[in-house]
Amino acid sequence: MQIRSLAASLCVLSFALSGCASKYVEPDQYSGFLKDYSQLKEETSPSGASVMRWIQPGMDVKRYTSVYLEPSQLYPQPQPTEKLPANTLKGITQYYDQALKTAFAKELPLANGPGPQTLVVRPAITAVSASTKGLRPYEVIPIALVAAGVSAATGIRDQDTTLATEAAFIDSASNKVVAEVVRKGAGADLDNSSQVVQATDFRAVLNIWAQDMAKSYQHLKTQ
């Protein structure tokens, strides 16, 4: 029985470490929301975060006189759960929309729809998750590891929340994609596995994403 418990705990450890290992959304986790992922490259956002991004070479952002922000969507469409209810999912997209409007309004007039000289931003939330926090180094000791595994199973341990986004930037006149970004970020920690995820847990990271998008546009404009 102890051997089985240890084996199960090792699985918990492996999962926790693998979940924290990458700063990026891995290719096998791409949602299919974007049409082409092949040109994405590792970049650093204005806030210093690691992202996967592509910008059309020679893109002239000065030609845009307005920006249209499409309502953010959940892709693929998730099934609400007790831990992640429908009102939380709706609240995430609503706040994302507001954060994008606030950030981009500082750079360009907001348009009510696609039009001449308009940059279209098409964002999506592609993952929302909560998982047991990574085990501390001292918990690798076998006896402590078994206890850690039991704690994780019974919901005692803190949990990390994670959010991922994919966004396409489209030239309204040609309907061609001129930039793409894929990234993930951390929300607020949960006290245990029974705590319900709230939209407010992700406000900080959504603000950062929106500000980074607007600042990236500003940077291109000044080049």
Rank of each mutant, 00 (worst) to 15 (best):
E70H: 06
V140E: 06
F104D: 10
Y75A: 01
L89A: 06
T126Q: 07
G149H: 13
N87H: 14
W54P: 07
Y138L: 07
A49Y: 08
A144H: 13
T161M: 01
K83D: 12
P114M: 01
N87C: 06
Q79K: 14
T162G: 10
Q39H: 12
P76C: 00
Y96R: 02
L110R: 11
K90R: 09
E42Q: 10
A103E: 08
V150Y: 12
S151P: 00
I143R: 15
R157A: 09
P78W: 10
D158K: 05
Q94Y: 06
S129A: 14
P57I: 03
L69E: 03
I141H: 14
T88G: 11
P137R: 07
Q77L: 11
E42D: 11
K90S: 14
I156R: 14
E43R: 05
P46K: 03
A127W: 10
E70I: 01
Y96P: 00
P109R: 13
G91E: 10
K41H: 09
A130H: 10
P142S: 02
I156E: 08
P46S: 07
P114C: 03
L100Y: 06
T44S: 07
I125A: 02
A127D: 10
V51C: 07
G115K: 13
Q56H: 11
Q79H: 07
Q73R: 15
K101A: 13
P76Y: 11
S151L: 13
P46Q: 06
A130Y: 02
R157V: 09
D158S: 12
S151R: 15
A148P: 00
K41I: 06
A144P: 02
A147F: 12
G155T: 04
G91S: 11
K101G: 08
A105P: 05
T161E: 02
T88W: 05
T132E: 11
E43P: 00
T65V: 02
Y138K: 11
N112G: 15
K90D: 15
S47C: 04
P85C: 05
E82K: 15
G134A: 15
A105L: 04
L108P: 01
A153C: 07
R53E: 10
T81S: 15
G115S: 09
P78K: 13
S66P: 00
P78I: 01
L119C: 02
R122M: 00
K62H: 07
R53A: 08
A111T: 03
A111G: 02
A164K: 08
G155S: 03
T88A: 15
Q117W: 06
L100D: 03
P78R: 14
A147W: 14
A148D: 05
T65Q: 15
Y138E: 11
W54Y: 10
G48R: 04
V61L: 07
G155L: 03
R122S: 06
Q73A: 01
A86S: 13
P46C: 03
L108N: 05
A103L: 03
Q39L: 13
G149K: 14
K90A: 14
D97M: 05
L145T: 04
I141L: 15
E107N: 02
R157Y: 04
A86T: 09
I125W: 06
E70L: 01
T118D: 07
G113E: 12
N112L: 07
Q94M: 10
Q73F: 02
Y68N: 03
M52V: 00
D60V: 00
E107I: 04
L89G: 11
